[in-house]
Design a binder for these strands. Structure first.
Lengths: 133, 133
DNA sequence: GATAACCTTCCAGTTAAAGGAAGTTTTACC
DNA sequence: GGTAAAACTTCCTTTAACTGGAAGGTTATC
């Protein structure tokens, strides 16, 4: 099938599909006119990539997952390791963001937000006041 | 002062400081030999930028905050608006990541992670199984 | 034969810097 | 005065994962 059809089947933009071919994630056949010709397996792979990416796996992770997916003999522990590592990164990111959120909430709450120019947020950013108070 | 000194005073790498000059966030004076010459106000501004960035404000946010910071007459509500918007983005990001975490945790838990090739994670990514179960 | 829809490649831009090359200036030391 | 090291300069490239657009070829329809 053409790239447009593969796009509809996989849910990925054509731009993204071409990019994935560029970096070697898929290798669709070519017709004599130069058009890409996607098999069902190709679009299946694209959908796999789409789902993996939407779960936040990096392209590098996706490459690994895809090769594991295509290796009928791999141990499930290999896959689990990739996912567990990703999970840890996510957990860490959440922790960071929550700390940020806590700090910002404090600042925003303390700012009266009216027409007066005095602002605790800027005071804090400028280093003139400690946040701890 | 020289860029090295400004770097130590502000906590930003010299590369970052030059970059910030490039994009117009600071405009240090120049000596006759071409070296940048930072005033205390410049380094103060750099430190302001460092703190803002470390709170996750984008460069564009920083540009706004900096101009608000330098405008002695601005209303604190203007600043609060920028911070509140940022806070909302952070909250949203946290929500997204927590949803991801939930999904991934489910997958990882369900994968037995041994030497057998069958793996619920890949099954899910391939679209062959619903996660809901 | 014209037009639209689809396809192709290639180049530039996005974020926020970091890394490195090549060359100049200043500083330190003998 | 010589020289070596440190600090400075500009410019170019790379990162992640695409997205947008230009310029042009192909196919289907009217």
């Amino acid at each position: 099938m053409h790239i447009g059809e593969a796009s509809r089947a996989s849910g990925l933009p054509t731009k993204t599909i071409r990019y994935y071919e560029d970096i070697g994630l898929v290798r669709p056949a070519r017709r004599t006119n130069g058009y890409r010709d996607f098999s069902d397996q190709d679009t299946h792979k694209l959908a796999f990539l789409g789902r993996s990416r939407s779960l936040g796996f990096s392209i590098d992770d996706c490459r690994t997952l895809l090769s594991l997916y295509e290796d009928r003999d791999r141990a499930s522990s290999d896959v689990k390791a990739v996912a567990a590592e990703h999970l840890e990164r996510i957990t860490q990111k959440i922790d960071e963001l929550q700390a940020l959120k806590f700090t910002l909430e404090k600042l925003v709450t303390r700012c009266h937000g009216d027409n007066r120019p005095d602002c605790p947020i800027l005071n804090d950013l400028s280093g003139r006041a400690a946040l701890s108070a």
